[in-house]
Simulated assay, not measured.
Amino acid sequence: MKKVAFIGAGNMNRCILIGMVKAGFDAALITVTNPSPEKRVALANDYGVNQSADNIEAAKQADIIILGVKPHLIKTVCQQLADAMDISDKCFVSVAAGVSMAQMRSVLGEQAGLVRCMPNTPSQLGVGMAGLFADDSVSDESKAFIDAMFVAVGKTLWLANEAEIDNLITVSGSGPAYFFAFMEAMQKQAMAFGFDQQTAREMVQQTALGAAQMVIENPESIATLRENVTSKGGTTQAALNTFFDGGLTDLVAKAMINCKKRAEEMTESNN
């Protein structure tokens, strides 16, 4: 098994690490670093992994290095590691939005393996969706290992080119927030109808869970599932007509396009 160093103990690195341990990866071969001790020490105590304040020492011992720091710090961290060691046998995995492979290559050079990954927050529950792109620098063995890491916290999708990362961000990366916003609006109106906050939440969350499970377990198109719930002239049609008359489809498209534009702007600003 390969040795893994998690640079940063933020939410995304934390959930990937926990998922790996729960899936049977050897905790003794995993190290997490973080400037402040609280998060890294808690992970070490709870899951048996190694912890350190020293990014360089952790990376020296690792085969796979997961870069989970804030986007504006990625190039700085890469420069520190490249200056301190031979990285030609290392594979770096960035989970930061807005930092292109070219930007990281400008620091790391051409020899190190490099993968961009965009996971999402449901990875914390093992039901995430991660999009990954690797260039020719990454061996099939390393790709298989990295895939297994992210399968431990959900599903994976290997992309044909790096540009697809920004497209994926608009769907699975930012998508959970879209559903939360819709659920929040439903809860608010349920409360306006007289339900208390907790009851309104339970109704909304169970309905959302059931709808998602129906999509998972049925081969029909999502449009067909919608139509199956919608009786002609009935209550559901009255609600859906309101959504569609209000431009729901166009609004969702516009929101996703703006999400992609912002991802592109972030990449440009990190040049």
Score class of each variant (00 low, 15 high):
Leu114Cys: 08
Arg116Ser: 07
Arg116His: 13
Cys117Phe: 03
Met118Val: 05
Asn120Gln: 08
Pro122Ser: 09
Leu125Gly: 08
Gly126Met: 03
Gly126Lys: 04
Val127Lys: 15
Phe133Ser: 01
Phe133Met: 09
Ala134Pro: 06
Asp135Phe: 06
Val138Cys: 09
Ser139Val: 07
Ser142Gly: 04
Lys143Gly: 04
Ala144Leu: 11
Phe145Gly: 01
Ile146Ala: 01
Ala148Asn: 11
Ala148Tyr: 03
Val153His: 00
Val153Tyr: 00
Lys155His: 14
Lys155Tyr: 12
Thr156Leu: 06
Trp158Phe: 12
Leu159Val: 10
Glu162Thr: 08
Glu162Trp: 07
Glu164Leu: 15
Ile165Pro: 00
Leu168Glu: 02
Val171Gln: 08
Pro176Thr: 09
Tyr178Val: 05
Tyr178Glu: 10
Phe179Pro: 02
Phe179Asn: 11
Phe180Trp: 10
Phe180Val: 11
Ala181His: 15
Phe182Ile: 14
Phe182Pro: 05
Met186His: 05
Gln187Arg: 08
Ala190Arg: 00
Ala192Pro: 02
Gly194Trp: 04
Phe195Val: 00
Gln197Gly: 09
Gln198Lys: 09
Thr199Gln: 08
Ala200Cys: 05
Arg201Leu: 07
Glu202Ile: 03
Gln206Pro: 02
Ala208Asn: 03
Leu209Arg: 09
Gln213Val: 07
Val215Cys: 14
Pro219Ile: 04
Ser221Arg: 09
Ala223Glu: 13
